[in-house]
Every structure is written in C-alpha cells, then in structure tokens.
Design a protein around this nucleic acid. Structure first.
Lengths: 222, 222
DNA sequence: GGGAAGCTTAACGCAGCCTGAACCGGACGG
DNA sequence: CCGTCCGGTTCAGGCTGCGTTAAGCTTCCC
C-alpha cells in the first residue's frame, strides 16, 4: 500500500508520515506542488493525500494535472477549516474525499483505508478462455478484444459455459438454467443456440460430449 | 440515482429528502433501523445515508447486516457531533464516508455525489462519452459543449446510463432507479423517455439490447 | 450398415420495441 | 378562478429480431 503525501508544513507532514508508517503504509512525501505533481505522475501510488493550500502551485492544479495525465488514483485533499470554495474546487478537480484542518490522524487513516478499499473493489474480474474473454462485472464478452454481440439466449448459454470452462455442462443443466425452471422441452432449440454460438466464436470452441452435454475449451484466435 | 435514507428524526429526514429531490435524486426513506435494513437488503440503491444514532437497532448493525448480505453500495453515515466511537464503529462496519451533525445539506449532497461517482468507477467528476459530457458535481449534461436541456425523468435515465456507460443497464434496474419505490409499471413510459432522449442526443447513442435493457455508447458529434 | 444423437439451415410467428399522437394532471400566470 | 403550458403517461399501430420448429444431413458407435 503506497501513498503519496503532498504537504508543505514539515511538522504536520512528519506527524502524518509517522502515523501512516505505523499503520504499515509505504509513504513518499513531497514538500511542494511541483515535486508532488511530478511524483504523482511518474510513480504508481495506491492513493494520495494532497494539501490544497500549497505555496506557489495550488493543490487543485496538481490534482488536475494528475487527472489529465490519466492518473485515477483516489485522492484525499486537505483544506483549511473555512475554505469552502477550496473544497468545491478540489472536488471539481477530481478529488475523492477531503478533510479539514485540523484533524485527527486516525481519521485520516480511516478515510484513506475506505478510499483504497473502494477503489480496489473495481478490479474487473475477467475470465479468459483463449481469444474469448468475459467481464463478469459488465457481462460483456469479447473475442480478440472486440465486443461480441450476442442475443439473450446465446448470452445465457455462453455464460453458463464460460463460468465453468473446461468442464462438461450437462444438457439438462443448461436447459434448466437457460429456460428458467420449466423444462420439458423435447425440441432442439438448445442445439440451434449452440450452433449459432459456434458460428460466432469458432466451431471448435464448444466441444460436444455425446450423451452428456457441452464443454467450452480454449477458443482459438480467429 | 436512487438513494436510501435511514433517519428517525422526521424533521431532519424531510429536510434531506427535499434537498435530494431538488437535486434530482430518487429517495426512499426508512424511519427506523428495521425498515432500513430490510429496504437496503431488498431494493437496489446507488447509495445510502444512514443515521448511526437510531433508536432500538443501532445503525452500525444495519450496515453490518447489509454488508453481510453482500450489499456493496456506498454508505454515508451520520453521527452526533462528539460520538467519536460511533464513527469508528461505523467505519469498521463498512461505511464509506461520514458526516457529523449538524451539517450543511449541500455538503451531504456533495459527498453523496462523490461516493456514487467513485463507486461507478469514475475518479474525475467529468464523464465524457463522445460528444456528450456529464459533470457529476453540478449534474449538467453538455452536448458538443452546449448545455443540454432535459426534463426530470430524461435526466435521471441519462444519468443512470452515463454513470455506467458502455455497460448494459437492465430495464428493471432503470425503472426501479428512475421511479421511486413503487414500480410494477407494465407500461411503456420508459420507452417513450428513451425515444425522447434519443431525439435529443442522437439516435445511435443509446443502444437497445433486446430482452435486457439499454446501453449508452459514444455519442457521435452532431 | 443401421440407428441414435447431434448439427445446420431456412422459414415462421410472436414478443419486445419504437414512435406519433392523444390524454391528463399539476404548475404557473393573468 | 380559469386558461395555458409542460411533462409524464397511455394507447394504437407497425416493425424487427430472435427463439422456435421442422426437415434433412452428418457423425458416432455398436
């Protein structure tokens, strides 16, 4: 857990650094806006604590520069007690949280933890299967990096398969999951869906296991 | 944007609700912990505001219950001025931010916006989607740099879509978030709203995914 | 070789969606 | 207190995409 602290007040900075180190954070400190901006742009931090009341370069500008450089790390800004406009400005620049001075260091740590926890929760859980990938969060399939257009039923079937790739999914299990509950289908509609899927993602991607069901294997690239 | 407010002080609750409604949030209110817990577990909210000082069931318990049930929505807790331990307890239970009473409603709204924005995966308060851009702080949409005039419902729908652009938003999720609480609408009013939106921001901007819902993609410039 | 299981293609019909226009209630303003 | 406007909903008509059916073909195994 690596944190960047941008704070010109040496005393306060030292206090924060110590507390953070006790809590097992790795901390880098920048004493002014220029250094802070540079470090934030070049190093990979999990979060940043940024004093808005910096001399020379305003903190909000530093933050804006980070965002412009594509840095998405969570940023907690520090403001003077009654600098309401600063706060708003900070949020406009892309801050994620703020704290007004003076504050308790425990509180800063708590906030930081909450920030990091939340931003970490956005790691997209991806399932890859050869050229095919599935983003469980958004439910989007991609083939060779290109989004795959699927119909509702195709999607359901492929989801079933990809969630348990390499293992055989029984025919019955598939129909049951795809056609919620009511089964009794003596038709071949599932086979039609499979055929259409095969045409889209590659003939060999879905292996058929006679008398049992289907199984998704590594999809060959194009 | 649907928010759950759990607050036993009716006066305060009413004040918050009004402010939130003015800011285009859809709000459900629970007057006690039991209702709050139940609503938070069963309905799909984008965020919750939770008073920790509830009678009977402590707010932290409500929050813990939500987390235990797998609810990941961002939660902002309200505490009395000097209830430091409450605060810590709240964060331990999984809160994402807090506010001490008394507070300015504008601040609550700002925090809420920041929370939602973050949980939607956007670090910066400005979301761009082709020619369309959205300022999450002010809630203003712009098309090709010109402010876009939207009605209340249009705005809510588009906000839902833009906060999770490129991903399919289920029909049900949309109606639920746009129409407060009571759903059960077997009408096509949502479709009408979508049609009107399309006319304003471009026919191809909102893709319809049959049987599932809609999805906002890069808006072509004029 | 024969039968069973599965594949594939094409056609059909309907559910789901779109949209214009009418309807209606509430919010203003005179 | 009554018109007007605005925005949300309802309705009807039309269209399209998708799931199903059916029929003929292929593959597998005894």
């Amino acid at each position: 857990m690596k944190v960047l602290l941008v704070e010109d007040d040496r005393l306060l900075a030292e206090k924060i650094v110590q507390a953070l180190r006790v809590e097992k954070f790795a901390v880098d400190v920048a004493g002014n806006g220029v250094d802070g901006q540079h470090m934030g742009e070049t190093e990979a931090y999990d979060a940043a604590v940024l004093d808005l009341g910096l001399p020379k370069v305003p903190g909000a500008e530093v933050l804006r520069a980070w965002r412009k450089a594509g840095r998405q790390l969570p940023v907690l800004i520090l403001t003077a007690r009654d600098a309401w406009t600063d706060k708003v400005d900070g949020f406009k620049a892309g801050a994620d949280d703020y704290l007004t001075k003076p504050f308790r260091v425990e509180e800063l740590i708590m906030r930081l933890r909450a920030l990091v926890r939340r931003s970490a929760g956005h790691a997209a859980p991806r399932i890859a299967c050869g050229a095919l990938s599935f983003d469980a969060q958004t439910g989007v399939f991609e083939l060779d990096g290109l989004p795959l257009k699927l119909t509702a039923l195709e999607w359901r079937v492929l989801e079933c398969l990809v969630l348990r790739k390499d293992v055989v999914i029984e025919r019955g299990d598939l129909t049951e999951k795809v056609y919620e509950g009511d089964v009794g289908t003596d038709s071949n509609s599932l086979e039609v869906i499979i055929a259409r899927l095969r045409r889209k993602i590659g003939r060999d991607a879905i292996e058929t296991v006679r008398g049992r069901g289907y199984r998704l294997i590594a999809v060959p690239s194009a």
